[in-house]
């Protein structure tokens, strides 16, 4: 085997740059600390990236169905599902399964509601998911008032457990990402999502059940957001009402940085992991350098704008 073609093939992968960025940022961090804490930083990055990856995959499927498709209700769904799950389980291990089912059910309801708004009321997805997120967030606030319930011991243990410095949750979600990669590239559902994103009309003429696929996609995104809320509440020792906040930018940013086309029709799963790690390591690096909160915010924003500028918006196909 010649090594050059492999290298060339790697460079052509859209997700490779997120991994390059991740390694550069990590090296910059550990060279600043003189090599200390390099492994700990990676462990922390794996832990926190996991949650962004879960919602990022859902957001990726939504964005891939074409321009104008985006799920802005993810943060509200995370908070809602976390609050409901914590309250139902009430810290008891025996309720774990029921809590998970109810939590995923919350996601299912939000997803179906989102799609109803889009389909029945013909509201553009951005406005539809935004309006429903207001309702969901209010429900979470009203329901979770004064919520200070610890997650069941088993869930907290599972969410924070590590093997040789690798979080168990990260391994599970990595496996899930592989499955979703296969779903995207090798199943009728995944191929249909890509086809709709490339040209909705052509996909419809080719006999793809466009509306069924879109329905499944919005439900998938909401259910994954609910799942994220469930494990995130376990990880951080309870649900809080603003715990979903950072995932609005997070979920969209990892999709874009990971090399998925925002114009739809082109997606990849590996990039989401790379981008999620990159985003966390970037903040860690800026913290290590002693940057103030203001500088950190500015650089985070500028990097997202720079990445999207370089990636460019593909001309929408019509």
């Amino acid at each position: 085997m010649n090594s050059l073609p492999i290298f060339k093939r790697l460079v052509e992968k859209p997700w490779i740059w997120s991994y390059v960025g991740m390694i550069v940022v990590w090296l910059a961090t550990i060279s600043y600390t003189g090599g200390k804490g390099g492994a700990d930083v990676l462990t922390a990055a794996l832990s926190f990236a996991t949650f962004t990856v879960i919602v990022g995959i859902g957001q990726m499927f939504v964005i891939t169905t074409g321009p104008g498709n985006v799920d802005l209700s993810i943060p509200a769904t995370i908070s809602f599902s976390g609050a409901v799950a914590m309250k139902i389980m009430d810290g008891s291990n025996s309720m774990l399964l029921i809590g998970l089912i109810v939590s995923l059910g919350c996601g299912l309801v939000v997803g179906v509601f989102n799609y109803m708004l889009i389909r029945v009321l013909r509201i553009p997805p951005i406005i539809a998911t935004l309006s429903s997120s207001f309702l969901v967030l209010s429900t979470a606030i009203a329901y979770g008032r004064g919520l200070k319930i610890k997650p069941p011991g088993l869930l907290a243990e599972f969410a924070t457990a590590q093997i040789y410095g690798v979080p168990i949750l990260a391994i599970v979600v990595a496996g899930f990402a592989v499955v979703m990669g296969v779903v995207l590239n090798r199943t009728i559902y995944g191929r249909s999502v890509l086809a709709i994103g490339q040209n909705m009309r052509a996909a419809w003429l080719a006999g793809i059940k466009v509306e069924k696929i879109r329905f499944a996609t919005y439900v998938l995104s909401a259910v994954l957001a609910a799942l994220c809320g469930f494990v995130l509440a376990g990880f951080s020792g309870g649900a809080s009402l603003n715990m979903g906040e950072e995932y609005l930018l997070g979920s969209i940013a990892v999709v874009v940085i990971g090399g998925t086309s925002v114009a739809g029709g082109k997606a990849n799963v590996p990039g989401i992991w790379g981008a999620a790690m990159f985003m966390f390591l970037l903040v860690t690096m800026l913290n290590t350098f002693g940057a103030s909160a203001g500088v950190r915010l500015i650089l985070t924003g500028l990097i997202i704008v720079t990445v999207i500028t370089i990636a460019g918006g593909d001309k929408p196909q019509r």
Binding site: L297, I298, T300, G301
Partner: peptide
């Protein structure tokens, strides 16, 4: 992205 820049 810009919203982070303005806030920063």
């Amino acid at each position: 992205g810009m919203s982070f820049v303005w806030l920063g």
